[in-house]
Amino acid sequence: MRKFVKENWIAMIPYVMFVIMVIVMGALNTNTLSLRYIANKSDAAFSLILVAAGQTLVLLTGGFDLSVGGVICITNCLAASRMQDSVGSMLLWAGICLAVGVGTGLFNGYVIERTKLQPFIVTLATQYVCYGIALFIMKVDGGNVPAAYINALLHRFGPLPLSMFLIVLLVAAWMIFKNTKPGLHIYAIGSSEGAARLNGISIMKTRLLAYGLSGAFAALAGLFRTAQVASGSPTAGADFVMISISAAVIGGTALSGGSGGMVGTVVGALVLRTIGDLLVFMKVSSYWSSLVQGVLLILAVAASSYGTLLKRRGGGAA
């Protein structure tokens, strides 16, 4: 047990952080330990968890996806303005949104692999295009979301929300996926593209898979946000871009690619969504909340990068 802790303490940072936060919150306000509260928070964090999960796949390949914000804007606007009350219409537009996300992701992946341009710039460009398209669909905030759609996605099984089951499902799916061939390929091209190529891995296919899934997850996040906020906004996604990267990084995924995973990301997203509430309970003025978020992000990352540094020195390798 002690050996396990010694070897894995870096990976445990986000979990410890989250547990401490929950304990402090529970001590400050016992209401936060009720199932009702947790159910609400699960719904509130779920969109971020979805985007960050997709972002993680891209970060693992050593890339970046800034266009997730744009995809969320488009899907949020489409769902809020076009969906009708019938089940068929809901499924149709959900499918279209998913297609938009996958399409954007595949485009990113193809352009990055084909032109060898930096993912940062390519996805920044697609982000602008997506923001533009979202403004085409809806000029101002608003829209009309069918009540049945909201009820379906925010459905409660007793006290437990649908989103909580979906989080568990996501983690379970990830556990299986990361040991499949495509999952390993994603890690491989992030660790060393050259070595991956020599081992016969198709870089193009793997990149398309990672960016395509990232787009798909962003689309799902947009769809869920539509139900959660019950309206659409052409600027809804802008807030998700940087915070999705933060969530993955706090969860232990390295920007250099090849290490990390989705479970950490889920916890990272929960940490980020909990900070705000924690500050409210600690009666800190909301003016200071971004400061605390930034400090926390640096501390989490500093601890893990410092730990990696120590490990390297101990190992003696460069």
């Binding site: 990084v249 920007l255 250099s256 992000l297 990352v301 500093a302 990068s305 990696t308």
Partner: peptide, 10 residues
């Protein structure tokens, strides 16, 4: 040793 994008974003 923090990645530049993360450090400056924070």
């Amino acid at each position: 040793g923090i990645a530049p994008v993360i450090m400056t974003m924070a």
